[in-house]
Write a protein that binds this DNA or RNA. Sequence first.
DNA 1: ATAATACCTACTAAATAGGTGGGAATTAAG
DNA 2: CTTAATTCCCACCTATTTAGTAGGTATTAT
Lengths: 147, 147
Amino acid sequence: MMKISTKGRYGLKAMIDIAVFANDKCICLKNIAERQGISENYLEQIIAVLKKTGYVKSIRGTQGGYALNVDPAKITVGDILRTMEGTLAPVDCVLEKDATVCGNCGSCVTRSVWERVFNSINDVVDSITLSELADDYKLKNKVTIDV
Amino acid sequence: MMKISTKGRYGLKAMIDIAVFANDKCICLKNIAERQGISENYLEQIIAVLKKTGYVKSIRGTQGGYALNVDPAKITVGDILRTMEGTLAPVDCVLEKDATVCGNCGSCVTRSVWERVFNSINDVVDSITLSELADDYKLKNKVTIDV
DNA sequence: ATAATACCTACTAAATAGGTGGGAATTAAG
DNA sequence: CTTAATTCCCACCTATTTAGTAGGTATTAT
């Protein structure tokens, strides 16, 4: 039904949280989970993927936690979502190089529709960097606290 | 995982098929199903939705079938997809008028991301009419047959 | 009358989403 | 050097959604 799953949404929230709160230090999973309202156990699995991909690094043991492993200005929402969700293609056939894979090749005019949807989604998510969202977050939180 | 389901894809294919082949007559479900490679029983359920929405009309009995009930130049891919899939919103919160519904209201900076994705998807699918796709189909099929 | 068609309703198998639970390994702090 | 906080690892689980199947009833041109 064309929904982004919790993996993608929580992954993005986690990255924003780390970008905002882990400056020169690291923050533990428990804190991220509490602030973002995500189950610790579930978030753990999500962060494991982000770590494997190289977007965050971890420090084990007491006072351990997570920190960014990339420049937040150089990583986009698209990078994060594709890591967590897999491709953002609305149908698989748009990933194939030749257009003849969907059986109906001669008459498959819908493929162009999906290609256009695919491109527009990627354009949007690739135009937003993590640092932009982290800045938004800081701003919004400041406002909320001040009022 | 951000996929369009078979309901949406088959619904669109069915509409294109009807737009192409039911000129001044009607075509039966069996023919649509064969041409488009869809199970008859399943397609039946899909066309039932399209009929209920008023996009196709039906004639019962022998020699019966389906025909368009709308001007194909005035109906878009977006209309058809939203009928079959429900909203194309990547997350539900973008449908709410006030931005305070997702619990995390003060700090929910991801909402703007989903809003931009939502808008870009809608822009694309609402910019393509059924008649455009039907014309493409006729063209492609002619080419395929001629070669 | 009959055969072709639309219409209706219930069921179901497989995949996906969204988790939960328990324990082992690591390490800073006391 | 013990302890508590933490990451890491992996097995399991439940509800929902997806993508159908199956079988029958109603209608109507021929």
